[in-house]
Design a protein around this nucleic acid. Structure first.
Lengths: 184, 184
DNA sequence: GTTTTTTGTGTACGACCGTACATAGATCCG
DNA sequence: CGGATCTATGTACGGTCGTACACAAAAAAC
């Protein structure tokens, strides 16, 4: 019952998952295939099917990693904030939206794609919801639970329409709905 | 320059588009192929490629039809309403959300899938935005433009999370964000 | 050492696909 | 009538894919 067996190249698995993430981020689920991953990772086809027998295994592993990274980023953002007034929270959230759109576009697109795929494939639901859960948890630190849920909805709508439309949203597009919700 | 030429079976094109809609609605874009449409419509493969040479032609035609039908439904909903108080508008919108989730689930799922695909393929953007545009127009009849935009965002977020999550939203889940926005 | 287990690879099968294209039938124009 | 034009179909090429599987190499167990 040794802990390590076989040629034990622990990088192998890592490299394959990293390649999978890259493929998902820039081609979406449609671009995912064992062969594409093998090419991207520089390993033979047999390696990808050995570690991840089915496409869903590959997908699930990559999604889990991406979600965890996203969660950490959100939590870091949350912990850098002190206690905020409502007005300050609006500005902080608007900054968050703008930053995400600028710096994490690919991750956002993928998370929406995942959500839409999960609507047809319940087995992917858990993976898809990791994003939303983290979001709500972080928001709940700064408001009550109910407002956090509403905020999460607005943020999703904002991000969705921003990513789908041709022109980026103005600051007012973002702050408008947030203010409406956060001004009691 | 006669209006009709050839064997002129006008149902042919119709049948193919109708079959395409059915395939998109229950299998999503991933299930779309010339062959699948041919099978569904009961026509030979050559027919589908004759009327719609590329997959995108097929997709665009079907999406346009679906969007128009969706727009009509929304407009009918809008015109059945008289002038409403803010509180009445909240209830009417919540009813709309619940009805859509119950009766037009497949259309909603497809519209989100389209939106997420359009994020990677700008040529599909126009088709994907038809849904959102109509929504905003109808909403703008009952509130000012700015509120309509915010509402549209909230509705998208609500529908997205409702479709992606395992359990349907409670009435409070729906009315919460709407009230927050519509109570000045 | 020998056997057993795990790690890793190459190949091949059957399926599906988009699209091109040669061809056939129908209709219209003159 | 005879072309010209449009409608409609069958087939076939070249490609991608998931997955199974036989097999080799390395490590572990004995």
């Amino acid at each position: 019952m040794g802990a390590k067996r076989g040629p034990a190249d622990p990088e192998r698995r890592e490299r394959i998952m990293a390649a999978t993430e890259r493929i998902l981020l820039d081609g979406g689920i449609a671009g995912l295939s064992h062969r594409a991953v093998a090419r991207e990772a520089g390993v033979p086809l047999g390696s990808t099917t050995y570690y991840f027998a089915t496409l869903d295994d590959l997908l699930e592993a990559a999604i889990r990693r991406l979600s965890e990274r996203y969660a950490h980023r959100l939590q870091r953002w949350g912990s850098q904030l002190g206690t905020l007034s409502r007005a300050e929270l609006v500005e902080a959230l608007a900054d968050l939206v703008e930053t995400q759109l600028r710096e994490s576009r690919a991750e956002l697109v993928l998370s929406f794609e995942l959500a839409s795929v999960a609507m047809r494939r319940p087995e992917l639901r858990e993976a898809a919801l990791l994003y939303a859960e983290t979001e709500r948890e972080v928001l709940a630190v700064h408001t009550d639970e109910r407002t956090a849920r509403a905020l999460s909805r607005i943020l999703d709508g904002l991000l969705l329409q921003s990513l789908a439309s041709a022109t980026p949203p103005t600051r007012a597009d973002i702050t408008g709905p947030l203010e409406a919700l956060l001004s009691p």
